[in-house]
C-alpha cells in the first residue's frame, strides 16, 4: 500500500535530520537574538518569543525560524510557540524573575525536558538549581574568565 511505503521513506528522511532540535528561545535581546541566530544557523528549528515585534530586527537575514510576539509569562504565548513539542527551551529574557517563572512553567506545565535559564544575579543560581533548572550566568562566566586570565598572567 502507498501509505506503508510512505511511512518507511518518512522514517529514513527523519533519521537523516534527527540531530535537528526544536528549540524555543524566550527573549530576543542581545543574548536571545545571538542564540536564535546561532541555533538556526546550525540547522535547528527555532521559535523566538518577544513582547516587542521590533526586537526581531536583531535577527540575522539567515534566521529561518519562527517569531512569536507575546509575553512568555502567559502560558498562551508558550502554547502559541508550541513549547509542549520543544526539545529545549532557553529563557533569555532581561529579568531574572521572568526567566525563573517561564522556566518553571516550561518544565512543569509543558513538560519540556531540557530547560536553561539565563540568570544575571549569580546569587540566584542556587535557587534555580533547587528547582532542577539548568542556569547560565553571564556575570559568573565573565567574572570567572577575568579571574582565570589574571591568575595565568601571574
Amino acid at each position: 500500500m502507498g501509505i506503508c511505503r510512505q511511512t518507511t521513506k518518512r522514517r529514513q528522511v527523519n533519521r537523516v535530520m534527527a540531530k535537528s532540535l526544536f528549540i524555543v528561545v524566550v527573549g530576543c535581546g542581545r543574548l536571545g537574538s545571538l542564540l536564535a541566530n546561532g541555533l538556526s544557523g546550525q540547522g535547528h528549528s527555532v521559535v523566538v518569543i518577544d513582547r516587542r515585534a521590533e526586537a526581531f530586527d536583531d535577527l540575522s537575514a539567515e534566521f529561518s525560524g519562527f517569531k512569536v510576539v507575546g509575553d512568555a509569562v502567559e502560558s498562551e504565548t508558550l502554547r502559541k510557540a508550541r513549547a509542549a513539542d520543544a526539545d529545549c527551551l532557553i529563557a533569555a529574557a532581561e529579568e531574572d524573575n521572568v526567566n525563573l517563572m517561564v522556566a518553571q512553567v516550561a518544565k512543569d506545565v509543558f513538560q519540556v525536558k531540557w530547560v536553561i535559564a539565563r540568570v544575571a544575579e549569580p546569587a540566584r543560581e542556587l535557587a534555580y538549581r533547587q528547582l532542577n533548572i539548568e542556569t547560565v550566568s553571564p556575570t559568573s562566566l565573565a567574572g570567572d574568565y577575568v579571574l582565570r586570565s589574571l591568575a595565568q598572567d601571574k
Binding site: M1, I3, Q6, K9, R10, N14, M17, S45, V47, G65
Partner: peptide, 26 residues
C-alpha cells in the same frame, strides 16, 4: 499551523503527494 517543525511539514508533504498513488479498489 505556524510554528511547525521541519519533520511535520515533511510528513504532511509526503502524505499529500502519496495520495495520488492511492488505489481506491484496495
Amino acid at each position: 499551523q505556524k510554528p511547525f517543525s521541519p519533520e511535520q511539514i515533511r510528513d504532511l508533504t509526503q502524505q499529500v503527494l502519496a495520495r495520488d498513488q492511492l488505489n481506491e479498489d484496495k
